[in-house]
Design a protein around this nucleic acid. Structure first.
Lengths: 229, 229
DNA sequence: ATTATCTATAGATCTATAGATAATGC
DNA sequence: ATTATCTATAGATCTATAGATAATGC
């Protein structure tokens, strides 16, 4: 169990540069980065303004100078997440889709999503906390936003196209997107967000999951239609 | 955003029966039930002993009489989860496996897992909170425990058996269990835990996901091998 | 007489603010 | 002179305890 020792006592960064004067904008960004780190690890209620101040090596008063309330800092941290680099990634996937190499596309998708989780681990944890701590209405907005972000959007259009070409089995693309991404995301949640070792290395996971997903997508009578007709 | 209004102010049950005297054992169970409800909704740090007392319609002192600390109550609530009814469910699945009807087995699995999430919604939310709030070592123990509980255990043995029979494609059953359960669990997390409407009804989800999973499991050269050889 | 519960409160901690102080730019 | 930061503290709230009180069983 070990519930993260009541509220988190913090002290993540030694307060070396206490008293250093940054520009208002720079300090604001630094506080937000620290906030993403702590909120993502301990949630909203598990992160105190004292813990944030200690981690940023400033006083609590300085935090409240930059953000009127703890809640407004949380919102700023949450909205700081960006779709960094997903445009180039999607255009790479589009080229693979044009080339008709579904297997390689899925492998690239897997590795790309995996890299995204590793790079933006804190933001993904923050999102999970938000979904658990948030209300249904807010979650609907968030989920909808996620579902229409670049990568899921691409996967949906790719599936629809392959269905028209008669390669993939029919069914609503929006549901099939979940089916494709769920095994990948599930694996990443365990390994990257919860820090659990699956017992297999990433390569094995890819080599098993990608063929599974590909078989799931294809029409049974076109099992080897790797390229467009 | 709307971060569950700082700490939760509670008052879930009107304190009608204030002063009612239960046996120690009965009160203990009642407090645990209230604790599961609140901890699952707001997490450990988002649930105050005052909120718990109000919801149980007793004083805070009474809670501390039954549980030495808030943490010990959390542990008790967490360990209160049971594998209720999963033995009968698994024996039903085993009969379907013997009958060789893979499609019907998967549909039954889907509905059973779905019913479990609806019935024990709070316990599943509690688990998600625990994974986010907990440490890697503790999460490994939890995940391992979950992976070896009745249903995933059955799915693993079912896959292994079908692989031996040459019906399912090869691959480590432990990874394939994740692949099978992930789309189902992902859908249930959205709809039951986060309260998000997917835009499709449950029947559509089943009708799309089950064929997808089944195609993913089968060898491409045996697409219609619904029954054992 | 025993057992469950409550009232009242201690002591720590949390968010937030007011006013003083120190660093920077002109 | 301006701007960022700090010290000190208010007021609320949190977990937990001590001792008083009320309900039950004999």
């Amino acid at each position: 169990m070990k519930v993260s020792g009541s509220r988190h006592a913090a002290a993540d960064t030694p307060r070396t540069n206490r008293g250093t004067k940054l520009t208002s904008a720079a300090r604001r960004v630094q506080i937000i980065e620290v906030a993403i780190s702590l909120f993502s690890r301990h949630g909203y209620n598990g992160t105190t303004t004292k813990a944030l101040a200690d981690a940023a090596a400033i006083s609590e008063a300085t935090i409240f100078k930059h953000f009127k309330t703890k809640d407004s800092l949380y919102r700023a941290a949450f909205q700081h997440r960006t779709e960094s680099g997903s445009a180039e990634f999607v255009s790479l996937l589009e080229r693979l889709a044009d080339a008709g190499d579904d297997r390689y596309l899925l492998r690239t998708l897997f590795h790309g999503v995996c890299a995204g989780y590793t790079r933006d681990r804190d933001l993904h944890r923050l999102m999970q906390f938000a979904l658990l701590e948030g209300e249904a209405a807010e979650n609907a907005r968030l989920t909808d936003e996620l579902a229409h972000s670049a990568v899921p959007n691409f996967v949906g259009s790719w599936i629809a196209r392959r269905q028209e070409e008669g390669v993939f089995a029919p069914g609503p693309p929006s549901v099939l997107v979940t089916a494709v991404l769920a095994p990948i995301v599930e694996f990443l949640h365990s390994s990257k967000l919860y820090g659990v070792d699956s017992g297999h290395d990433d390569a094995t996971e890819v080599d098993v999951l990608v063929p599974f997903i590909l078989r799931g997508l294809r029409r049974p009578d076109r099992p080897d239609a790797d390229n467009r007709p």
